[in-house]
């Protein structure tokens, strides 16, 4: 085993452990956005697509590199945009809502819940 491969393997194993450690703390509320965010992160394969597109000089190579670039860009752009769209919906209770909600209460609310 070369030192370079050993270093790669060490990084791989440690990154796995970091991934487990970071994810275990995320509340269930955020699992769907999290899955989408993780999905976007593996869009890093776009860097791989760029590296191999630079290394190829044959027609089959170009064709496959083109499809790889399309897929990878779809993954990375779509993944981040949809994650952001989801997370943009998580907002705190609007402050203005409270006084409006309090107004029409008085009449019926004094009745004890009979259910």
């Amino acid at each position: 085993m070369t030192p370079a491969l050993f270093a790669d393997l060490a990084v791989f194993v440690l990154a796995l452990l970091v991934g487990i450690e970071v994810i275990s703390k995320v509340p269930a509320t955020l699992h769907t956005p999290l899955m989408s965010a993780a999905n976007a992160i593996h869009g890093i394969v776009v860097v791989g697509a760029m590296i191999v597109a630079a290394a190829t000089d044959t027609v089959p190579g170009y064709i496959l590199a083109f499809v790889a670039a399309v897929f990878a860009a779809m993954n990375v752009v779509g993944g981040y945009v949809v994650t952001d769209r989801m997370l943009g919906m998580f907002r705190q209770r609007p402050v203005a809502k409270a006084p409006v909600a309090a107004a029409p209460v008085a009449a019926t609310d004094s009745v004890e819940a009979g259910a």
Partner: peptide, 27 residues
């Protein structure tokens, strides 16, 4: 993706791929 990183000797692919592999596994 991490395996593609090994094939291309790209640390950023290995790291990001492994992160997602672990997070997906835990999820």
């Amino acid at each position: 993706v991490a395996m593609a990183g090994f094939a291309l000797d790209s640390l950023v692919l290995i790291t990001a791929g492994a992160l997602v592999g672990a997070s997906g596994g835990i999820l």
